[in-house]
Design a protein around this nucleic acid. Structure first.
Lengths: 204, 204
DNA sequence: CCAGGATGAGACATCTGTGTCTCATCTGGG
DNA sequence: CCCAGATGAGACACAGATGTCTCATCCTGG
């Protein structure tokens, strides 16, 4: 009855997302198969993590496609992105922190692709005047992943409601903690604004 | 010559911050002592992590004190917080993700104290009308830690400049990615927003 | 100068997780 | 109905890390 490889991966992801140090034995149990069978499908823990990485990347790519990042206002695209990527947030949180371990090893080239696609969104928003330009697209991308991880953990630990996930992340990422209209205090120099789509009231 | 325990901890932190899976042997070398001596000071890896936790908490408490969170405009206090806490960011990043492992175990009560103090800052900012009220203080606190970790990793990986650390985090946390003046699209209802820095208590 | 305390180096036993292999069992297709 | 293929259970050896202990050495204070 050939174990459903994808099913196994999802079971593994569900566990490793919560306990990143879980044993192959625990993973096997979580997936509902024996350790032997787990080994038959994935040469070792490393191979398993790689497979999860591939799964995570694939889900992200799918999410990015579904979010149609290059359509409409950039902020709306960012919100769509958060919405589409939510199901993968737990897995991403695992992979994101896991990646901090791979010191020298080259990281999966798929990540750089994702990074690029998301960075492009932020860059597009900057060019259109919708996003501020004193925060680099690379940082905004990194911050998005960080917030996704924080949000996923918060929900998992029960400190936050799942229904608030998208709002929490998208709103903080886009609007920050300040109330709209609040003038920044020690702001970075912001160009007079080439301006563009929407109204902007200029600050200070 | 009694090894300087604090010195050892900082050495360990410097390494574990980069490689969270480092061996006791590696930690010892990094701290410039033998594994035997390391064991004489810390019963085991667990004890070491606990000590690091205590160190991180202590540094955070110090940073919070130095930031004088209850003085002046909340946004300014938040910026001071980011500035003061920067030196501990690496250690925090390690502890923050490490904490995701302690499943059932009660986490060091020092964390909840820190959480409370920071949450209070955000709550204060909300009451004064400086911070938006549709994001809970708990989430803002969590997000701050997440961004600190992301920022620390970004700097460590060389993808970001250390000098930008404070600006990246404080500005994103407070102002978000949107340009000032950009009207939020799918925003939560937010009051018209009075004016700027000084006191303002109202709010709904 | 000498004794006590601390450290470094390394031996050792132990433990845990891993990877491999065997064998009985089960299931589905021919 | 029968066989091939896949799975579960468990034995085994191995590698890496850990915790403990011993012994020689090196300060440092008295």
């Amino acid at each position: 009855m050939a174990v459903d490889r994808d099913q196994v991966l999802r079971g593994a992801a569900a566990l490793l997302t919560r306990k990143s140090t879980a044993t192959m034995d625990e993973v096997a149990k979580a997936a509902g198969i024996s350790r032997a069978t787990l080994h038959r499908h994935f040469a070792g823990r490393d191979a398993l993590v790689r497979a999860l990485e591939a799964l995570g990347i694939a889900e992200c790519e799918t999410a990015l496609d579904a979010a149609r990042l290059d359509e409409g206002p950039a902020p709306d695209a960012a919100r769509r992105l958060v919405r589409e990527i939510e199901p993968a947030a737990g897995l991403l949180a695992f992979l994101y922190t896991e990646n901090q371990l791979f010191e020298g090893e080259e990281l999966h080239h798929g990540w750089t692709r994702l990074d690029d696609r998301i960075s492009d969104l932020f860059r597009r928003g900057q060019l259109s005047g919708e996003f501020r330009i004193d925060l680099t697209p690379a940082w905004l991308t990194e911050a998005l992943f960080g917030l996704l991880a924080s949000g996923a953990w918060m929900v998992q630990s029960g400190k936050g409601a799942p229904k608030d996930f998208q709002h929490m992340i998208a709103e903080l990422l886009l609007g920050g903690a300040l109330r709209p209209g609040q003038a920044p205090h020690s702001p970075a120099p912001q160009n007079p604004a080439p301006q563009s789509s929407a109204t902007q009231i200029e600050e200070s």
